Amino acid sequence: MDIQTQAEIVLRDAGYETWSWTGSPPLVACFENQTVIGFVHVFDSGADLIRRWEIDQQTVLARHSTALRSAGLKAWNVYSIFLTAEQASPHEQRAVERIEEDFSLARKIARTAVRTPQDVERVLLPLIGVKAQPLLGDANFEARLRSRLKDIPADAVTAFLASTKAEDVARILGDQ
């Protein structure tokens, strides 16, 4: 699987504009929406990620510095994402995890063993909106609301559902 292409697909599906920057090897996937700007870096190995993440981040951020300075509040939401398909050793894994604790220049997401589209989506979850949509179907909304408001006096709920004035509902609640 091509991690960079899959990342661009996931980000586009989440409403981001994406493009590739070929300024220096390796290729970097850039993304942006109304509130976030970011860069996806893909490495051949965990060791390569650990060795090169800082210089690669600095190179990309320096190249885009003019745009970042003019981005206003969005410049506070810059993400650098560092990924590899290789499974890291325990020592390398700890080093990769520490990358995310470095808040200089950008927020960071760093992961190893990214091998499937589901892995890519899981990595990018902090940047993707909630996808779950409740299935309401044909339901008796009044009955559902009453069941959720069981701690509120029944006459107050009835008054509320009957479009009684707010002051009257408040009075009923106050009398309880």
Rank of each mutant, 00 (worst) to 15 (best):
S24T: 05
P25G: 13
L27H: 14
V28T: 05
C30P: 02
F31N: 02
E32K: 09
E32S: 15
N33W: 04
Q34D: 13
Q34N: 12
T35N: 12
V36K: 07
V36F: 09
F39K: 01
V40Q: 05
H41P: 02
V42T: 09
V42H: 06
F43H: 03
D44K: 14
S45C: 10
G46F: 01
A47L: 09
A47D: 08
D48F: 07
L49P: 04
L49N: 01
L49A: 06
I50Q: 02
I50N: 07
I50A: 11
W53R: 03
D56M: 04
Q57Y: 05
Q57M: 08
T59G: 11
T59H: 12
V60L: 06
V60S: 04
A62I: 02
A62K: 11
H64K: 09
T66D: 15
A67G: 12
A67F: 11
L68D: 03
G72W: 06
G72K: 08
A75Y: 02
A75I: 00
W76T: 10
W76V: 06
N77C: 08
V78G: 13
S80C: 12
F82T: 00
L83M: 09
T84M: 06
T84E: 06
T84N: 13
Q87Y: 08
Q87H: 10
S89E: 07
S89H: 06
P90G: 09
P90T: 07
H91L: 13
E92C: 04
Q93R: 10
V96C: 04
E97P: 02
R98G: 08
I99S: 11
E100G: 08
E100S: 07
E100C: 10
D102Y: 04
L105T: 06
K108N: 06
A110K: 00
R111P: 00
T112H: 15
T112F: 12
T112N: 15
A113D: 11
A113T: 05
T116A: 15
T116Q: 07
T116R: 05
V123R: 01
L125D: 12
L127R: 00
V130M: 14
A132Y: 11
A132F: 15
A132D: 07
A132C: 11
P134F: 13
